[in-house]
Design a protein around this nucleic acid. Sequence first.
DNA 1: TGGGGCTTTGAAAGCGTTTTCGTGCCGGAC
DNA 2: GTCCGGCACGAAAACGCTTTCAAAGCCCCA
Lengths: 353, 353
Amino acid sequence: MGNGMTGKGRVTIREVAERAGVSMATASRALSGNHPVPAATRARVLRAARDLDYVANAHARALVGGGRKMAAVVVRQVTSPFYAQVAEGVEAEAADRGWLCVVGATGGDPQREMEFVQLMREEGARLVILVGGVVEDDAYRSRVARYAQALDASGGRLVLCGRPAPGPDVPALVVEFDNEAGAKAITAHLLSAGHRRIVFLGALPGNTALDARVAGYRAALAEHGLEDEAAHVVDCGLGRAAGLRAMGELLKGPRDFTAVVAGDDMVAAGALRAIAEAGLRVPEDVSVVGYNDIPLAEDFDPPLTTVRTPAEELGRAAVRIALRDPERAAGTHHLLGTHIVVRRSVSSPGGSS
Amino acid sequence: MGNGMTGKGRVTIREVAERAGVSMATASRALSGNHPVPAATRARVLRAARDLDYVANAHARALVGGGRKMAAVVVRQVTSPFYAQVAEGVEAEAADRGWLCVVGATGGDPQREMEFVQLMREEGARLVILVGGVVEDDAYRSRVARYAQALDASGGRLVLCGRPAPGPDVPALVVEFDNEAGAKAITAHLLSAGHRRIVFLGALPGNTALDARVAGYRAALAEHGLEDEAAHVVDCGLGRAAGLRAMGELLKGPRDFTAVVAGDDMVAAGALRAIAEAGLRVPEDVSVVGYNDIPLAEDFDPPLTTVRTPAEELGRAAVRIALRDPERAAGTHHLLGTHIVVRRSVSSPGGSS
DNA sequence: TGGGGCTTTGAAAGCGTTTTCGTGCCGGAC
DNA sequence: GTCCGGCACGAAAACGCTTTCAAAGCCCCA
């Protein structure tokens, strides 16, 4: 494969042009295809480029072309199954359109988030997708408003996935699952199995995604004619460790519930383990449902009944919607549907007790 | 927050310079800090930049500065827990050094891998990290040799994580776990629990990582004085589905084994389920061990005894080593250690049967 | 007072590409 | 035979920044 590498630096279009015996302008036209070029000339240039192993300098290209197609997706951590799937969706949809996609992890630190967004602005990202629940406070609102305006000013676009828009006048797009409907549906599933005393484990006041799920849970209860006092919400936050601990606490007290709706599958994983450690069985003694249907949910013991949120589709939808209408449909809110997947962690309470 | 956004385009350094009453050169010096500038002048420039919400154009900067600090990590898919952790490690270490990190997913398709590497060359990535097992054939070797040489020619560096180097003269770095030692240790763990008939589930001939694990398994057997015929290797490949199917097949035949070493945790997850579906219990009837210790391994039923491969550390090590000595220590091979984490999926075979 | 170094600053030269503008040329219409 | 439209192509400008080069100002000592 006779590579024509001469020295250190990269091969430039000038060298390609010289070898092909044309001017840089013609070489550029032949290579980028932006302007018609006679087939013979074109072939000569392409041949020369291949011989020299020429790769265009994306920086120079972006500099003159006024930016480049690049999307950035920002998640708390890549190792969370849900975030990873969203990121994969964004990546896939971006790749399909020939866009470059970079993903950044913040570890939940607003400082790192700001740094990363700043970096993306420098790099000329035209699409920044912030995914994942956060606590919505004033700092959050002003921060996101700033991002949105800055991006908007330079022709970019901000998308919030599962995050609230800070205000109606902020030029950001919101794409998320219908958390309220999902939680309502899975709670109704429990209710129609006969459960009446159901606890919601893993709320996180201020996190809009979780708040919506709690609202859905309450709505289902209300629709079944239960008083609001029947609701029992444990604010332990997300994560397996939180679920393990909170469920352990709960089981120390009187067992005045027959089912638990977990804030997400990881909380459910913790709850499952806590229940097992207390010598109880799922679903005979307690029914448990999760949220998100992470890939391993069917390997839990027992396989978990949960709400499937097609996370990859969320990522794809985010870029699809953002790129659809360039005419700034600012502040629009898109809700994606979810559905229940029934496995073996729910039974009728009549069976035991 | 009086932002000085005037129109559409981005604010340039020229406008900052004008507002601060200095030349572009001085503004550049003050902003980039590459050259000393009197404190007073510097403050004026910084003030102007802040007022105008100036962000440097990374493309222009990279163009004149001869590239930019950017690393690319290429994995099969981001949603695999192991790859995700490696990517997170790379991202973290890169971020610590002020590098930008791009992650690409190939879905295992060499075509997409090539496209992505090409794109990274255009973008001027100085570090490309290919992670994940592959089947090593001629196409693979020539492909990787090409990447390595191309990157090397333009001052970049190729790192292979858990992949074989295509040859000793190829300017690539290899960083991986000591798969042979890990598999040997976990097999020895089974042997010292009394198991003698152990099957290895999930081999994939040609994949060097798996091949090394199989070698470690055989070595442990040999060290315990077992003939090589005692080895029973099932070539079903990786993934939960493969484990589920292969284990199911195995259980249809005579049960001539008491323990299984899975190629990785996902295979173990499949095996666990297959065993449960056959009405058998782990570890009473069959002991199972995995490989990698993914985050959910302790939530399996039963919690899985496995080999912990600190994946994030692998990612960090890859960039650390690659950046350590610029003087091209080509072809060097770095092995990272692993250790066993004991949970509850192993018991002595004496108990039952 | 003059001159040698040091600091501060600005003008301008690139970096590698795309694109505009202009020139030369050819074929066809008159 | 002349003129005009269109095609092929090259020269040069532009993109936004960093950095070199040189000039100007300053301080200090002889």
